[in-house]
Computed example of a mutant assay.
Amino acid sequence: MSNVTRLRHALPMSPEINKTIVDLGSVIANAVNVAKAAGLPKGLIVSLLNGHAQVQTNIMVS
């Protein structure tokens, strides 16, 4: 895992990275709000996000 970078240790981050992180957070929050409004159970939302995070983690460390 020597190719994994912790963002807080790579400071200062560029304005582009900061904007991308803020945008990503907003998109995720909006998607969760839409899913809640559609009546998806909160447990399903959490499990979907967790599953996606697991897949992405596996991709990054492979």
Results as ranks from 00 to 15, higher is better:
Gly39Trp: 01
Leu24Asn: 09
Thr5Arg: 13
Ser62Trp: 12
Gln56Ile: 06
Ile28Met: 04
Ile17Tyr: 09
Ser14Leu: 06
Ala29Glu: 10
Gln54Phe: 08
Asn58Thr: 13
Pro41Trp: 04
Ile28Thr: 14
Ala37Cys: 03
Ile21Trp: 13
Val61Ser: 14
His52Pro: 03
Ile21Met: 13
His52Ser: 14
Asn18Gly: 01
Lys36Arg: 09
Ser62Gly: 07
Ala35Lys: 06
Ala53Ile: 04
Thr20Cys: 11
Asn33Trp: 01
Lys42Cys: 13
Gly25His: 13
Val55Glu: 11
Ile59Leu: 07
Ile17Asn: 14
Leu48Glu: 11
Arg8Cys: 13
Ala35Ile: 00
Asn33Ala: 00
Asn58Gln: 14
Ser14Tyr: 01
Leu7His: 01
Gly51Leu: 03
Val34Lys: 00
Val55Asn: 03
His52Phe: 12
Lys42Leu: 00
His9Ser: 13
Leu7Asn: 06
Ala37Val: 04
Ile17Pro: 13
Leu44Ile: 04
Ala38Lys: 05
Val27His: 15
Glu16Phe: 11
Val32Ile: 04
Leu24Gly: 15
Asn18Arg: 06
Leu11Lys: 15
Val34Leu: 02
Leu7Ser: 03
Ile59His: 08
Pro41Val: 09
Pro15Cys: 04
Leu24Ser: 07
Val22Thr: 10
Asn18Trp: 15
Asn30Cys: 07
Ala37Phe: 05
Ala31Gly: 08
Val4His: 13
His52Leu: 10
Gln54Cys: 04
His9Trp: 07
Ile28His: 14
Gly39Ala: 01
Ile21Thr: 11
Asp23His: 02
Pro12Leu: 00
Lys42Pro: 11
Ser14Ile: 06
Ser47Asn: 12
Leu49Met: 14
Ala31Phe: 14
Thr20Arg: 02
Asn3Glu: 12
Val61Thr: 01
Arg8Asn: 11
Leu7Pro: 04
Leu7Gly: 08
Arg8Tyr: 09
Ile21Lys: 02
Arg6Ala: 12
Val32Ala: 02
Leu24Met: 10
Ile59Glu: 05
Ala53Cys: 02
Pro15Thr: 01
Ala38Ile: 02
Gln54Pro: 01
Met60Cys: 10
Val22Lys: 07
Thr20Ile: 12
Gln56Gly: 14
Asn18Gln: 15
Val61Met: 08
Ile59Val: 15
Ala10His: 03
Leu40His: 12
Arg6Trp: 14
Met1Tyr: 14
Ser2Asn: 14
Ala31Gln: 12
Lys36Tyr: 02
Pro15Glu: 15
Leu49Gln: 06
Ser62Leu: 15
Ser47Gln: 04
Ile17Gln: 05
Ala10Gly: 10
Leu11Cys: 08
Lys19His: 08
Lys42Thr: 00
Asn30Ile: 06
Pro41His: 12
Leu49Asn: 09
Thr5Asn: 03
Lys36Thr: 00
Ala37Asn: 00
Ala35His: 03
Leu7Lys: 04
Val34Gln: 04
Ile21Ser: 09
Met60Leu: 07
Ile28Asp: 11
His9Ala: 11
Arg6His: 07
Gly51Thr: 10
Gly51Asn: 06
Leu44Asp: 14
Ala53Asn: 09
Gly39Lys: 11
Asp23Arg: 09
Val27Pro: 14
His52Tyr: 14
Val34Trp: 03
Ile21Val: 10
Gly51Met: 08
Val27Trp: 05
Ala10Phe: 04
Asn33Glu: 01
Val22Ile: 05
Ala10Asn: 13
Ala37Leu: 00
Ser14Pro: 11
Ser47Cys: 03
Gly25Ile: 00
Val4Lys: 00
Ile21Pro: 01
Ser2Gly: 15
Ile45Pro: 08
